[in-house]
Nucleic acid binder design. Structure first.
Lengths: 192, 192
DNA sequence: ACCTGAACACCGTTCAAGT
DNA sequence: ACCTGAACACCGTTCAAGT
């Protein structure tokens, strides 16, 4: 890459990070180019789609999550490892409001710039889930897709200003549901 | 209301229902007016905001939910009543993809045309929750706001094409978490 | 009273023209 | 190679002018 192009790329990313953190994943691309002092075509040259830009922004967090998944696979108990990793994944998605919808859609869209990253995340989560299930620490009626959907749901809650204050509490509730054994069809009254 | 105005109102609502069902709550308002064969100003006259249009579309479902909440308060067991009502509320939100975000935001926005409806829904859900809690059929560490947030999360899952197939399963999992007693801080291993 | 549609200020996306 | 910005086809929203 030519030196001037590299400089544009880096600067665009910095500016985009600020704007997307403020205004969410649907921030105006025109604004990004304008704030970076660069032509619209330059933005499109470096990031041909909005997903490509989002992918670049999420890159660092994704890499850290991948590394952490590896560490957790040997450290701590399987159930704790799973929950700790899920918490980080949700936090990563919440860095950019609205990004979670693109991440979720990318799982099934091979053409998306986010596809590979998100499939990798889903696979890492699935491994942690399977290990916890093998040890009897996670309920058995869940698979990787269910887990990713729950992450999506929790990230969405964190993205809504009116719900965000409840996000941590709901995370704990759903985490405990993941760790618990599946409930019987009809809730049993307390023993008497 | 003048007869011609009433006719426009009704026709706009019919057309909007179709378009919003197809394209989601962010369907183009221009398209709605165009498809209804009416000037843009006429749409804005009858529905000054997108929320006002959404409110009119959700009206029927909301009314049915309110009635059902009353019925359920005396019929069936408190836990079953709560879960059945939540299922219907999620289904109602899923009628119009993307509507749930507006509903959730409306709770705290007194200026929103959806405010009253959504506060009413939240209050009805809270009553069903409190009754179930009083009978020991719902966990005690939840309040109405938590419940509404969980409904939002589940409705969001149902709105995502990639996740919708999992929506029913996740509903059951979260429903059983609502009905269960809160888990201890650390998940206890199975008795041995 | 009610309706219309032009006008304004924005978008996303593409692409010919420049360096 | 890379950059620019005009051009196109869309938005949401307002409001003067019509009936």
């Amino acid at each position: 890459m030519r030196a001037d192009a590299q400089k544009n790329y880096d600067h665009l990313l910095t500016v985009a990070r600020g704007l997307v953190k403020e205004q969410g994943a649907d921030a105006s691309l025109r604004d990004v180019a304008r704030s970076a002092g660069v032509g619209l075509g330059t933005l499109y040259r470096h990031f041909p789609t909005r997903e490509a830009l989002l992918e670049a922004l999420l890159r660092q967090g994704f890499d850290e999550l991948a590394a952490k998944a590896g560490d957790l696979a040997t450290a701590s108990t399987p159930g704790e490892a799973l929950v700790a990793w899920l918490r980080d994944l949700v936090a990563c998605a919440n860095d950019y409001r609205g990004a979670i919808a693109s991440m979720v859609a990318a799982i099934e869209d091979e053409g998306s710039a986010l596809h590979t990253s998100c499939v990798t995340m889903k696979a890492a989560g699935t491994r942690l889930l399977v290990r916890a299930q093998a040890e009897g620490e996670a309920r058995s009626d869940l698979d990787g897709a269910d887990l990713f959907a729950l992450v999506g749901a929790l990230a969405w809650v964190g993205d809504q200003p009116a719900l965000a204050p409840r996000a941590d509490h709901l995370f704990d509730i759903i985490a405990s549901a993941i760790l618990a054994a599946p409930a019987p069809k009809r809730p049993s009254r307390a023993r008497r």
